[in-house]
């Protein structure tokens, strides 16, 4: 039995995952929490957010995020892909910054407009 704090929403449910019986989850209050409990032990994933350089805009950095969760163990490698990237304004919300991060099928996208 492994105990976890759910991070799907700010409520932070205390989950119990029965690792010996097919990763059965208890203590959750929604379906997403149940899925999180199982996934967190089998293949933990996270959405990663950061910034990259931009020129010709009102700021020097533009925020980016992964458009889906990537495996936790790839986070630092994924961050390296952002080094040296320099975008030119205008950039629109959702524009792809890095396509298919490390073969995950997930992209880094801009998380705001910067015109």
């Amino acid at each position: 039995m492994t105990e976890l704090t759910c991070i799907v929403c700010p409520r932070g449910c205390r989950l119990k995952v029965d690792t010996e019986n097919g990763y059965r989850v208890t203590g959750h209050s929604c379906e997403k929490g149940e899925a999180y409990g199982k996934n967190e032990l089998l293949n933990p994933t996270r959405v990663v957010t950061s910034t990259v350089k931009i020129t010709g805009a009102m700021h020097r950095r533009i925020p980016v995020k992964t458009n889906g969760a990537i495996p936790k163990k790839l986070i630092f490698e994924a961050m390296k892909l952002l080094d040296g990237i320099e975008l030119k304004a205008p950039v629109k919300l959702g524009d792809i910054v890095v396509k298919d991060i490390l073969g995950t099928g997930i992209d880094f996208v801009a998380s705001r407009d910067m015109l």
């Binding site: 957010t49 910034t51 925020p63 998380s111």
Partner: peptide, 22 residues
């Protein structure tokens, strides 16, 4: 606040700060 986790109650989806403001 470029991290995600905003909007789960109001928009029923997980947004970053700039996206929520946007």
């Amino acid at each position: 606040c470029i991290h995600n986790g905003f909007g789960l109650h109001y928009f029923k989806e997980e947004l970053t700060g700039p996206e929520y403001a946007g």
